[in-house]
């Protein structure tokens, strides 16, 4: 079967099998490899992408479910001129990654939060990101990065 959806602002049409997960279609068929797969069990959040603005675990979300929807992956975060999204910049500035395997999912989860709640408290950030595991950093730099990005986005708009 074929599914059509918006991917990072562009329409895509891709041949899939019903069993294909969104992560498989993104990384294997469309070769957008920024989406990372780890636990394959909706625990770690590494595979998080945004579907209609909400974070989903693409390791278990069926590609078929994305039909007609608006999918955003890490590759879709820079602006048209290639400038980094404030979250991407703040993750660099705050050393909010080491190996980077959790980073795409972490940034997209954080984006969903900031889009909804531009000025979150620390407790809200922690609560929102509790489904995203990072084995490297010990989380504090990520918390700081989300705070920094929130401020930057506020000043920007």
């Amino acid at each position: 079967m074929t599914v059509e959806f918006q991917l990072n602002g562009e329409p895509v049409s891709v041949a899939i099998e019903p069993r294909h997960t969104l992560a498989e279609v993104l990384t294997r068929k469309l070769r957008l490899t920024g989406t990372k797969v780890s636990c394959e069990a909706e625990v770690c959040g590494a595979c998080t992408v945004l579907v209609d603005g909400l974070p989903v675990s693409s390791c278990t979300y069926l590609a078929y479910e994305a039909r007609g929807k608006n999918v955003v992956t890490i590759e879709g975060l820079e602006d048209k001129n290639g400038n980094l999204h404030p979250l991407q910049q703040s993750f660099i500035d705050e050393f909010a990654f080491q190996c980077g395997f959790c980073t795409s999912g972490m940034i997209l989860s954080a984006k969903a939060l900031l889009d909804e709640n531009p000025n979150p408290t620390d407790a809200e950030i922690i609560d929102h990101l509790d489904g995203n595991i990072c084995r490297c950093t010990g989380y504090l730099p990520i918390l700081k990065a989300v705070r920094t990005a929130a401020t930057a986005m506020e000043n920007y708009s």
């Binding site: 490899t33 992956t73 890490i74 590759e75 991407q88 980077g100 980073t103």
Partner: peptide
């Protein structure tokens, strides 16, 4: 490795 890792590249 900052830009490579935050952009998924």
């Amino acid at each position: 490795d900052g830009v490579a890792k935050v952009t998924g590249r």
